[in-house]
């Protein structure tokens, strides 16, 4: 309650710090074990997280940047209009993003509006985030991915002599690689000799979006891929600055995970 003559409540620095640390720690401890960890908070990871959380899955999204949304803020060439080929506009309807029709089968929305609505929609569904957190390794047990090893992003940015900081592990039932063209989780398995990744082909919007959605799914026991990671994993053409494929791939991976866990069907 504000003191008379003051706009804000009389709370000091120590109380603010305690509030940050306590709530963060409480959530962190709770999510040391979860149903699903999605690595990458781009559009496919966000929509996948949203759909999983809406079905009651305890879902954590790990994002190496401070900001969420990946490339969804910008439509391409630094222009903040994002495009969707039909039927991607149905996902926009679902999360309440306004858009306009550019031509038959092509829709345009404001990047900031679409991205912020998608983030809010994931948060509303119950997804929790570990941002500024970088994927470091997988937890591999019984030939199945059962978690991720993570560290603070800044640890990677500083000289090793200064930041010799060990990472920590988070356990989960399902890991999703939504890290875009980097396909970091899939490539980690490749570095262990468990997969062979061809890398993505040239940009080819017309062909890529269908193929991405059709190849979305489990790539190794416990590891699923969605969005741009799919193009790298299977060597199929990469998408250009259009987002329906990513949204539908995110929805597809959620469906596949729910199916594999026998939830929601």
């Amino acid at each position: 309650m504000a003191q008379e003559g003051r706009l804000f409540a009389p709370v000091g620095e120590k109380e603010i710090t305690r509030a940050i640390v306590n709530t963060f720690a409480k959530q962190f401890v709770e999510y040391v074990e979860s149903d699903c960890i999605i690595v990458g908070a781009g559009p496919s990871g966000l929509i996948a997280g949203r759909d999983l959380a809406r079905q009651g899955l305890k879902t954590l999204i790990v994002e190496r940047n401070n900001y969420l949304g990946g490339g969804f803020w910008i439509g391409g060439y630094l222009l903040n209009k994002v495009t969707f080929r039909a039927p991607g506009e149905k996902v926009l309807d679902e999360i309440g993003v306004p858009y306009e029709k550019a031509q038959e089968g092509l829709f345009v929305a404001d990047g900031p509006h679409a991205c912020s609505k998608l983030i809010a929609s994931a948060c509303d569904a119950g997804v929790k985030f570990a941002n500024m957190t970088i994927f470091d390794d997988v937890v591999l047990r019984d030939n199945r991915v059962q978690g991720v090893v993570v560290n603070w992003t800044p640890v990677r940015a500083l000289p090793r002599e200064i930041t010799c900081v060990d990472p920590i592990a988070l356990e989960t039932k399902i890991v999703v690689d939504a890290t875009g063209h980097d396909a970091l989780v899939v490539k980690m398995l490749e570095s262990k000799g468990l997969l062979k990744v061809p890398g993505h082909g040239s940009m080819w919007v017309e062909a890529s979006e269908d193929l991405v959605v059709e190849h979305t799914g489990e790539v190794y026991p416990g590891l699923f891929v969605c969005g741009m990671s799919v193009t790298t994993t299977y060597g199929i053409p990469r998408m250009g600055p259009t987002f329906s494929g990513m949204l539908l791939s995110g929805k597809r991976v959620a469906e596949t995970i729910l199916e594999s866990l026998k939830i929601g069907r």
Binding site: K196, P198, G199, G201, H215, T216, G217, E218, V219, T233, Y234, G235
Partner: peptide, 18 residues
């Protein structure tokens, strides 16, 4: 997987289930 590859598909490599 890549048109500019110098070698063709390796039939001994098992494809992904997907």
């Amino acid at each position: 997987k890549e048109l500019t590859a110098k070698v063709g598909p390796n039939e001994s490599v098992e494809p992904f289930p997907a």
